[in-house]
Structures are given as C-alpha cells and as structure tokens.
Amino acid sequence: MSFKSFIPYQRRSVHAVIVTGVLVTTLGLVSIAHADPQAADNVEVASSIELDVPYVPTPEPVVEGMMEMGAVSEGNRVIDLGSGDGRIAIAAAKLGAQVLGVDIDPERIREADENAEREGVTDRVEFRQEDLFDTPIADADVLTLYLLPTINQQLRPKILTDMAPGSRVVSHAFDMGNWASDERRTIAGRTVYLWHVPARIEGEWQLMQGDTLVNLTLSQRYQEVRGVAQRDGQAMTVGNARLLGDRIAFTLADGEHYQRFYGRVDQDRIQGVEPVEALAGPGEPVEADWQAERES
C-alpha cells in the first residue's frame, strides 16, 4: 500500500443474509447438563459467575467482514476477547492466524473447544477461561471484540498503552467513545468498526530534509495530529496531518512552498518512506530524503 493513499476511509455497505444468533437460556444449559456430567459442572460454575457481557453470537457475514477489515492473515497473532462459541477466533485460525479466545464462562469455553475440534483448527487456536481485563494483549496484531460500549471504553487505555502502533482493533456493534474509528462499515445490518493503534508522536521534533533543519512541534489526540513548525526562524504551517497506526503524513508550508511528507514512526524517530511531494511553489528540485528525531 502506498503511503500516499492517506485519505479518510469511505463508509461501505456489504449486503448479506443475516444468520440469526440464538441466546442459550438457562433451561437450555440445564438440558445439556442432564446429558453431559461435565456440562453439569460447567452450569454450576457458570451460575456463580457474574458476566460483564451477555452471550450473543456474531452473525457469520459479520465475522467474515471483521476478518477482512482486520486484514487477518497467516502468521498474525489474533486475540478475541469475549470469544463466546469461538466463531470469530476459529475464522481467524482458518486464515492461518495463531489465535487466543478468552471468555469467563466455562460453558462457552467448552462449546468453543468442541467447535474448534470440529473445524480442525485446534493447532492454531486456544480458548482460555479468564477475565478479559486480565488478558495480556501486547503481542496481538489484531484484537477482536463484541462486548459492550462501557467495556470497550474500559479497555481503551490498555489498548493504547499495551498494543504496538499499527496493530488493529475490530469491534462488532460498539465504538470506543471519543476515540473515532479509522473505518466503519455496515455489514448485514450490523456496524463494524476498525482502529489502528496510533503511534505516540506528541513532542518536539527535529526534521532534517537534506541540509535543511525544521523544528516541528506536534500535539496528538488519538490519531488526530496538529502541529507548528519553524525553519531558520520563519514560522511554517503544518497542515492536513494524518496518523494511521505507525504511519504519518503531513504538509509543511511557508507561504511559498507546499510539501507533503510521508513517514513511518519508530518510537523517537520518523523515517521518510515516500518521496516528498512538491504541491506548490517554485520549480526547484525537492530534496526527497528526510527524517525526524524527537527531542522531548
């Protein structure tokens, strides 16, 4: 993907047949328990657990859309919080990802394990009974969620702190409060959101373009970036800034020259990854190589 495609995502609708999810009632669990002694133990344990999120299955077309939006592929590490019957985790495993599904309900874990075995992906997916707030997520390339708005917002600080810049978060139905999504789609009448965990770029930077030094000050609110700059004591305008995970694009203008920069953020360093674009100004050659280092 070219870094020059830094434009706002367009909403898209995907039309598909909805697979209606059915809630498992207490009566249903008791019926299973009569047929399966292990299930009876699970029912007893489950009845003593206070669930943060009710179990509602995600329709299969939505699962497929979540995989596409999260760009799940072979070799990815995927963590599904509130994994239920395992359908999201299993879909990721079928694409070659290594997957962890987490649910606090032992009955859902038992069901998910059975489904994984039936689908032949037990070597690529693990289901674990634990509180989702206790699950380490730092190594996840993709985090999938179908929880509740309040739970998403409680998870938000952990996502922003622990997950690597550029990793993806895909949520069925619920957003992240004031952290706007990078993409939103309607799939089979359901809303699905995508975020790229933003790099931390706030601070004072020294940008070198050839022999030219630009002092750049950036502020940040999630993926929203603002800035001011100076070159040789002359104020410059920082405009049209866009942060997508660890990728950044912005325009520098001094009233005569307008140049577009594309870079990748790596902690306290930004490395140019595309030639600088001369958007307007005199026709002298543009120094294409650039980099920036954070001072504070």
Rank of each mutant, 00 (worst) to 15 (best):
E50M: 09
V63R: 15
G227E: 06
E111P: 02
P54F: 01
Q271H: 14
Y193P: 04
V62L: 07
S48P: 04
A173D: 00
V78I: 10
F127C: 03
R11V: 10
D134M: 03
T150R: 03
T58P: 01
E256S: 12
A140F: 08
I159E: 03
T26M: 02
S296I: 06
A288F: 05
R124Q: 12
L51Q: 13
E44D: 04
K94G: 05
G272L: 13
V273I: 15
H15K: 08
T217R: 08
I88A: 03
A288Q: 15
V170M: 06
Q234K: 15
R110P: 06
V43P: 01
M67L: 13
S31K: 14
H34I: 07
M1E: 14
R87Q: 03
N215G: 00
A140R: 06
I7R: 15
I270P: 04
N240K: 11
S296C: 10
V19L: 07
A39D: 02
D289F: 08
A253K: 14
V238M: 06
Q223L: 05
A40F: 12
A46C: 07
E119R: 06
R231V: 13
F127V: 05
I109G: 04
P59V: 13
L213N: 10
R185D: 10
F250K: 13
E68K: 08
E130C: 08
A253H: 11
S5Y: 05
L143Q: 02
D211E: 02
L243P: 10
R231W: 06
A93C: 09
F133H: 13
V102I: 11
T150V: 11
G84K: 07
R231L: 09
E202S: 14
V225D: 12
V197R: 08
P54Q: 01
G245N: 05
W195I: 11
I90R: 02
V53T: 11
P136R: 14
Q223H: 15
F6N: 15
Y262E: 03
V72I: 05
L194N: 01
D36P: 07
E130H: 02
A235W: 10
T161F: 08
V197M: 04
Y9H: 09
R269V: 11
R190F: 08
P61K: 13
L143R: 03
A164P: 02
G272E: 13
P136C: 11
M236V: 01
L252K: 04
A71I: 07
G82K: 00
D266P: 11
N42C: 14
E202R: 15
Q259C: 15
E126V: 07
R190N: 11
P54T: 01
V72M: 00
